[in-house]
């Protein structure tokens, strides 16, 4: 699975960072940085899924990896 962020819609709530500080960060302007674009199955993927779910601006997308 591939995790991507739409940095133009991000509102900097930091909820993804709270969910998994190893997978997400914020730049100095508060905008999301994806540190782990390919979460492995299991715990990493579960937390990525939660981050996608709670993102208040729906700026995170988890999709099938493109070939």
């Amino acid at each position: 699975m591939e995790l991507t962020a739409n940095r133009s819609t991000c509102i900097g709530s930091g909820q993804c960072v709270f969910t998994d500080p190893d997978a997400f960060d914020q730049d100095d302007d508060g905008i999301v940085l994806v540190l782990r674009p390919q979460p492995s199955a299991g715990d990493e993927l579960a937390r990525a899924t939660e981050a996608v779910q709670i993102c208040p601006s729906r700026s995170l997308v988890l999709s099938e990896q493109s070939a």
């Binding site: 509102i11 900097g12 930091g14 960072v17 960060d25 508060g30």
Partner: peptide, 14 residues
């Protein structure tokens, strides 16, 4: 306005 101020409220800065 939100984009301009949200950098003050990042998880790290807080």
């Amino acid at each position: 306005q939100r984009v301009r101020i949200m950098g003050e409220f990042t998880v790290k800065k807080i």
